[in-house]
Amino acid sequence: MKPARFDYVRAEHLAEVHDVLAENGNDARVIAGGQTLLPMLSMRLARPKVVVDIMHLPQLQTIDADKGTIRIGAGVRQAQLLGWPLLSDRQPLLAAALPWVGHAQTRNRGTICGSLAHADPSAEIPLVLVALGGTIELSSRRGRRRIAADIFFTGMMSTARSEDELIEAAILPARPTGSGYAFQEFGRRHGDFAIAACAAVATDKGTRLAVAGVADRATMHDFAALDGSALDDALDAFAWDLDARDDLHATARYRRELVRRMGRAVIEEARRCRA
């Protein structure tokens, strides 16, 4: 269980990263924390020709918060963000979800953007980004673009990133006043891939629920101000729309049931928390 051979580039300038990606396309892999890439390399599921290390670029290491947004650079580790003193004030949903990402020992190395790049359908960070309407900032030799999280994730481990692009940052809206949040997750064990994870955001415009672990990507739905049996019906329809599948750990039917029940619980909690 050892990786196949690859070249290694420790980038000292952003342009080097762009060059490696432009020149090698899908044969290049960015390594940041490596917490997902390394097992794939060791299992030889991934066999890049070149691995480019972006963890020595100071401009990617920053968390920048202005009054409306939080911009998290590609080099920011999950533990670093979790330890950011302003986190629970600026973005409580992310603060609630981050402790569910792997374990302390993997959060110490794993990055926020690495999780987005990997696009695991049960991952918490993509879920939070989708729930909050965040954006992903991509850069390449060709320039820079931003793409909304809900269209960035295109399926199981698939994203709208082009082969030559680096995920340079994740951008989240800061918590607007008067908004409420809730997060719940259920897995077989703590730290496991979620069988279902639900994040809800309640604002004066309505309530949005995003779900991970059920569809092939984190998926959201706006529930406006629905409640009572209307909310149940809408949740039921949403649960079916996610096209859940059976797997080793849970049935599709079980996943739908978690979406209905956990979904309702987080929606109500987010609304309470707003009130």
Binding site: R188, I195, D233, D236, D246, H249, T251, Y254, E257
Partner: peptide, 26 residues
Amino acid sequence: TPAKLAAHIHAAEPAPRSRPTVAAAP
């Protein structure tokens, strides 16, 4: 497993209202 036990707890799941019934072969 939780899914196995939950099958004894959760009530039978009604077919989806929003779409035609799909063959629910396990």
